[in-house]
């Protein structure tokens, strides 16, 4: 049915037979889905609205557990264990698997405190260590030059694109192994978008990345692997150039050529 490429490299994550049903829904939003996620690569998830991209993405850091009565089954393997079990420590998991949201989510505090937030959660109190790591994260997120003179200012005073890079800085500050991006540029202008894309590509050296996007050019520009989802299923996963040039599934081809979606 589905064409899913074998990945012979090391894997950051591996989804096996994962199925997810929202509380109160009668049909699953993600159906018996299996896919590998290559380490230190960028995997893009594309597909029409409502096909389950966000649902799948939010399963990797167990975000769904914030709301009651969602049902899921199958396995998601991360560091040799299934993270879907009840004994999984969600706090540790979410430190290792970070997430960037569609809209920037700057906390109502200073720029510095935003980036230091995750570090403080881990018990880092030493001022100099905090400052060095905040500075490094802001540099990694390519926003240091714009904010270095106003670290004490309210983060909500930044532009949307700057806020999104601040959120990326906040996420990379805790040195996660995987970063999940859910349409990180859909609320941004083209210039900010280009900046974020560049940043994501650079981050690949240190983290494994999964990015959900509606923008097929974006998937083609930034990702190494692309997965096409449709109605809760993964139709095809392959190397990005192959998906966009020589897709193996008819549905994938129809979607990327704009016949639907």
């Amino acid at each position: 049915m589905a064409t899913i490429i074998e990945i012979n490299k090391e894997k950051a994550l591996e989804v096996k037979n994962f199925e997810f049903t929202y509380a109160g829904a009668d049909t699953p939003s993600v159906k018996k889905l299996s896919m590998p996620v290559a380490k230190h690569n960028i995997t893009a998830l594309i597909g029409p609205s409502g096909c389950g991209k966000t649902t799948l993405l939010r399963s990797f850091n167990r975000m769904h557990d914030l709301y009651p009565n969602n049902k899921y089954s199958g396995e998601i393997i991360f560091k040799d264990r299934n993270i879907l079990t009840s004994k999984e420590d969600l706090i540790k998991l979410r430190i290792q698997i970070g997430m960037i949201f569609q809209k920037p989510t700057a906390f109502p505090m200073s720029i510095f405190d935003n980036v230091a937030y995750g570090l403080k959660l881990q018990g880092i109190k030493n001022r100099t260590e905090l400052s060095t790591r905040v500075e490094k994260a802001l540099k990694d997120a390519a926003i240091w030059n714009e904010v270095k003179d106003r670290l004490k200012h309210d983060a909500n005073g930044l532009s949307g694109g700057q806020q999104q890079r601040l959120c990326i800085a906040r996420a990379v500050a805790v040195e996660p192994e995987v970063l999940l991006f859910d349409e990180p540029t859909s609320a941004l202008d083209p210039i900010s978008t280009a900046g974020i894309e560049e940043l994501i590509v650079e981050l690949r050296e240190r983290v494994s990345i999964i990015i959900v996007t509606h923008n097929m050019q974006q998937a083609a520009r930034v990702s190494d692997y692309t997965g096409f989802m449709y109605l809760g299923e993964l139709v095809e996963l392959g190397r990005t150039e192959e998906i966009f040039v020589t897709p193996k599934e008819r549905l994938t081809e129809e979607y990327i050529t704009g016949k639907f979606g």
Binding site: L66, L93, I95, F101, T105, Y117, L121, C167
Partner: peptide
């Protein structure tokens, strides 16, 4: 906004 809460949870906050 609930996304603000989610963002904090996503950083591993209890």
């Amino acid at each position: 906004p609930s996304t603000l809460r989610e963002a904090a949870f996503a950083l591993g906050a209890p």
